[in-house]
């Protein structure tokens, strides 16, 4: 179950880490869902066409990045409402993928790619002697390790580099960066692009692991990732923990399905339900002792 949780967590973690960049730069990126979808579709197509998983992952990242570029063009360059354009990205992904799919394969349903290489599992057979640690650390898909690697990378990029310093300043107090001669808009744009690339990777990780493309394969992971950013207190380590929690809850629910005979259809809504409960609980807890914040913002 822990093993499953880690696998389930991976795309959420990837997308949330990317989304964190956007969040810290002051953009609530509600387009993550659509970006993941685009990455999943492009990733598996390129992977199947080239026979290379690496090409598949790169294609996923590229698709996410390109769609994010469209997003920034409208929301930042043309200053359109960021939430409405975010919805547009989600709709565009959901609407255009069946179109392309029909055009290329004659179906907008499930796409199977039997020739696609299987995602390799790393550190298989390695054991620490403790079952819990084994299922947490060893024998996972390569994408799991990629996601883990990105946690320290994000940590360093955000907190140890000039880039991260400026990015965080853009989100916290834009004019403090502007007067320092830095192009704040460019940083915001780059942050959204990073979140697009990461979400694209997350999508490719989903589809390449399954080896098939299903309509709506992202299944709300973009939204879960968005909530994981908040639950993780907008910090890479916190996000890792939040993503693990989501993964664990979901795998628990999957196991419960068999025992309690919950209909499969209903279960599709479960990730959303878990997420919304987590979000409400989190904000209720956070609301305590926060009443002074507004006045800090207003007067300091």
């Amino acid at each position: 179950m822990i093993f499953n949780a880690v696998e389930i967590m991976t795309p959420i973690l990837l997308a949330a880490l990317g989304g964190l960049f956007a969040e810290l730069a002051g953009v609530l990126n509600i387009a993550l869902e659509g970006l993941i979808l685009a990455g999943a579709f492009a990733g598996i197509l390129a992977g199947a066409a080239s026979g290379s998983l690496v090409v598949g992952m790169l294609a996923g990242a590229l698709a996410g990045g390109l769609l994010a570029a469209v997003f920034t063009f409208f929301s930042i360059r043309l200053r359109a409402n960021i939430f409405i354009t975010g919805l547009a990205v989600n709709l565009l992904a959901a609407g255009s993928i069946p179109f392309i799919s029909t055009w290329m394969f004659g179906t907008k349903g499930v796409l199977r790619f039997p020739d696609l290489p299987r995602l390799p599992r790393l550190l298989e057979g390695v054991t620490s002697g403790v079952g819990f640690i084994d299922s947490l650390l060893f024998g996972h898909s390569a994408t799991v390790y990629l996601a883990w690697l990105l946690v320290p990378l994000a940590l360093v990029a955000l907190y140890r580099t000039p880039f991260g310093l400026r990015l965080r300043a853009v989100g916290a107090r834009e004019d403090s960066v502007i007067i320092a001669g830095v192009d704040a808009v460019a940083y915001r744009r780059i942050a959204v692009l990073i979140s697009g690339v990461a979400a694209g990777l997350a999508g490719a990780a989903i589809s390449l692991r399954l080896g098939v493309y299903l309509p709506n394969i992202s299944a709300g992971r973009g939204w879960i990732a968005l909530v994981a950013i908040y639950l993780g207190y907008r910090h890479p380590i916190g996000i890792l923990i939040a993503a693990l929690l989501f993964g664990f809850t979901e795998s628990l629910a999957g196991a419960a399905q068999g025992l309690l005979a919950i209909p499969g259809t209903v279960l599709l809504g479960l990730p959303y339900a878990i997420t919304v409960v987590a979000m409400i609980t989190y904000s209720a807890l956070r609301a305590r002792g926060q009443r002074r914040r507004r006045f800090m913002d207003a007067h300091f």
Binding site: A88, P98, F99
Partner: peptide, 20 residues
Amino acid sequence: FSFELGAIIQAVIFFMITAQ
């Protein structure tokens, strides 16, 4: 031909409607 024109129409409108 059959595909989801609806979502694409929505997407285009959402992209453009509040753009300056």
